[in-house]
Each structure stands twice: as C-alpha cells, then as structure tokens.
Amino acid sequence: MNMLFRNIIAALSLGLLTIGVQAQTAPDEFVRTISQSVLEEIRSDRSLQSGDIERLNGLVDRKVMPYVDFQRMTALAVGRNWRGANPEQQKTLMQEFRRLLLLTYSGAVRQVNELTLQVRPVRAKPDDDEVIVRTQVLRPGREPIQIDYRLQRSAGGWKIFDMNIMGLWLVEHYRNQFAQVVGASGIDGLIQSLKEKNQSLVMGGGGAKQSAK
C-alpha cells in the first residue's frame, strides 16, 4: 500500500506533464505522452525522488499544469459555494488546493524506478467531449495501482479535470470533504482548514521533506 500510494503519486505527477501534446491527439496518447515525460524527468532527477517539494512544484508547473483545467477542478471540488466566493477567495482556494494535491502525491515520487505504466484502451466515440482514460501502474509482486484521468475536449486540446486513484475520484472526494468544512465555518473556514492541512502535511512528512515555503 505504501509503495502503491507512492507509485500513484509518481504516476500521477508523471502522468500529468508533458512536452507539446498536439491539440487533437487521441486521449490515451495524450495521457501516455504526459506520463512518460514526467516519469523520465523524475527518473533522471535525484532531488525529485528524495521528495523535494519545491522542485516537484516546478516540474508540475512546467509539465502538468498546461494540460489541467485547474480552475474547473477547484470549482468542482468546492461545489456550489464556489460562486459565492469572491475573486480573492477563489484565487486563494486554487493556490491551497493545488498545494494539497501536490503534497498528496509527493510521497509517491520516490518509488518511480520500479514502475511501469500501462494505458488501458479507451472506450469512447471519436467525437466524445468527455473521456475517461484508465491507466495502471505495474509493480513487481503486487497488484497494479489504478490511476485514471477525466479529460475534457477544449479548443486548446485535451484538458485534465479530475483524476482517480484506486477507485477514488479526487474532485468528488474533496467536494464531500469540503462541504462539511464549509457547512461548519464558511468559505473562509475552508481556506483556513486548507492552509492548516497543508502546513501539517509538510511538518508531518506527508511525503515531503523540504519546507513548504
């Protein structure tokens, strides 16, 4: 399970980045290209494998974020309270949510050398605008880790707006977690909780050894 989570994270972060993916690539090809390029970079960079959070942050910025509709992701996770938040709050929510996802995954990056990524065949019609791409990360002697991506067709090519680890869709999961916090203490309470959570994950290890600042 530990390796599993690490692998997941690795595969995720890997999976997310890439160099110049064409606008109308097939969705499975899109995911494969991003994943391979992230994996290669992590494999060739020791400080990434040792859990350097700032370096991982930079990698995600360069190679993953261009292919993620992160505003949509955050809006979906915050749910119906998103529209009630002012632009300043929305910006902070996006920042903190991004950091939370990064910390969720940083631990997996270390195990990346033993992993092989397999993209499963996509069941979708060529004109579908929303597609799920399922991948599995193979590990010797253990069950594969399942990592899936939800993609949306856009003018600039495919965009990732949700991902699934071992059956758990993260946006939906966080929407339920956040709903409880917002219900108790509002949007500002959620921002506060996110900050505290990120802080404690950095302190407690959470896969990250370096300071969060």
Binding site: F5, L103, T104, G107, N176, F178, S193, K197, G204, G206
Partner: peptide
Amino acid sequence: DLLDAQGTIEALSFDRYTG
C-alpha cells in the same frame, strides 16, 4: 504498508472518519 501511506490518507481526510 499503511505506515507510508499515512500522509496521503491525512491529505484526503479533513474529517478522518468520512475520509
């Protein structure tokens, strides 16, 4: 196995029980 996944589990859980 779960020891190393601790951080991930915590990151997923704002309320541990429902997480």
